[in-house]
Design a protein around this nucleic acid. Structure first.
Length: 401
DNA sequence: CCTCCACAGGAAGCGCAGGAGT
DNA sequence: ACTCCTGCGCTTCCTGTGGAGG
């Protein structure tokens, strides 16, 4: 318990430059991505000499450094080529998820005068061609999370076709995606245009993660403020999950915050261990509060019944492990009641089943098929997180609003 | 053995909001 | 700015499934 604000302020933090630990920070050096950086540079380099870069496609799971690598290379490109012959549009397709929006964004980036809404695609297209031809520019369009574009075939067609319509200059594409299987849905023609070159980013292993964390903590943390074992644990946990560098960074950052809150000085693996709980809980809270209302209500019904105990408590005799499993029928009944409580019209039983499947996909509940000992064919449902917490989150979410 | 139970999940169709085209 | 179109969330209807009960 601090005696005064003065004490809190004078207390030394383990951080010296906190934002270095943030996942958005792009360090001056990207460890373990040297090969990838070189390949991206190689494919972009023709732009420096007025040539058309090859189209490039990058895959890799989240937190493997795809976006950072591309941003790093493009920053370098703009530094070395301070002229205006290789303009860049960096587009996050989660925000600009259609051909129209992407085209509009490109125009807005470079010729904002014409970016008013209401114009058709063909208008944007021709303005853009004029602008590129003017002094033979080499436009580079980066499509981050490219799988989020609804009419991707059309977009790719439009952009690659522009090279045929241009007398001078060119447009090249750089696509980034974390889903490997999405190209199956693509038109073979747009596939071959996008996949001229392909780079796969593999997940970091725990040693690589450790050296990344180590490098960042050297500038982010105060000297001696973080123990090596803490870094190793954070890397090991993240490597075990998916090799996600963002997750590893979060663990370390949160661990530092926890240590600060208690005024403890070196960040140890104990802090990281607790950070893991807190981070995972935060993820669950986020996942729940962004859920559609009715899925939240289903979760609410499940958590309520879990706390009260199943009405049909006769599970297979002797199966003492099966505590707190609920039947989908009784959950539906409570879901209908709970919907009324939150002033919502309950959905049909068919759609309720769909909700259950969605929630299972998100890892918020688990289900097993009813075996012996149960009349009829149903599923046993169990909540994956603390029932009290889930109930409170949903209540807060749906009551005040 | 057949029937019933208590569901699972596919198919078809419907109304609506928002995006595309004019 | 206006209409047309499409995708999405949802309902209704239906067939399937595996054990219980008679």
């Amino acid at each position: 318990m601090p005696d005064s604000f003065k004490e809190i302020l004078s207390r030394e933090s383990v951080f010296v430059k906190r934002d270095v630990l943030s996942p958005h920070y792009i360090p001056g050096k990207l460890p373990h991505r040297e090969k990838e950086i070189e390949r991206v540079m190689r494919s972009v380099s023709p732009a420096l000499e007025g040539g058309k870069p090859r189209n490039l496609f990058i895959y890799g799971k989240t937190g493997t450094g795809k976006t950072s690598t591309v941003k790093y290379v493009l920053n370098k490109l703009q530094e070395e080529e301070s002229g205006k012959s290789a303009p860049i549009s960096f587009i996050n397709c989660r925000l600009y998820g259609s051909r129209y929006k992407v085209m509009q964004k490109i125009v807005q980036d470079h010729i904002p005068d014409f970016a008013k809404p209401g114009y058709g695609i063909s208008f944007f297209y021709e303005r853009l061609l004029d602008w590129i031809e003017k002094d033979g520019k080499q436009l580079i369009v980066v499509l981050d999370e490219v799988d989020m574009v609804k009419d991707l075939d059309d977009l790719l067609y439009t952009l690659t076709r522009s090279n045929d319509d241009l007398k001078k200059g060119g447009v090249s594409l750089l696509g980034i995606s974390n889903r490997l299987n999405f190209k199956e849905k693509l038109d073979p023609r747009s596939m071959s245009s996008l996949l001229e070159t392909e780079i796969v980013f593999s997940p970091y292993n725990s040693r690589e993660l450790a050296s990344i964390l180590d490098a960042r903590s050297k500038t982010g943390f105060a000297k001696g403020a973080v123990e090596e074992s803490a870094i190793n644990l954070a890397s090991a946990i993240a490597a075990q999950e998916t090799g996600d560098a963002r997750y590893a960074l979060k663990l370390l950052l949160r661990g530092g915050e926890i240590a600060d809150e208690r005024g403890e000085r070196p960040v140890t693996d104990k802090h990281v261990e607790e950070a893991r709980k807190s981070v995972d809980e935060g993820v669950a809270t986020d996942a729940i509060s962004t859920l559609p209302d009715h899925q939240q209500i289903v979760l609410y019904a499940i958590s309520k019944l879990t706390l009260r105990g199943s009405r049909y408590s006769r599970l297979g005799n002797g199966d003492s492990d099966g505590e707190n499993y609920l039947l989908s029928g009784e959950v539906y009944e409570d879901y209908v009641d709970s919907s009324k409580k939150f002033h919502k019209m309950p959905r049909s039983a068919r759609w309720f089943r769909q909700y259950l499947n969605d929630l299972e996909m998100l890892g918020l509940i688990t289900m097993v098929d009813s075996g012996k000992g149960q009349r009829g064919h149903t599923r046993f449902i169990k909540i994956a997180y603390s029932a009290e917490k889930v109930r409170d989150i949903v209540e807060k979410q749906l009551m005040g609003g």
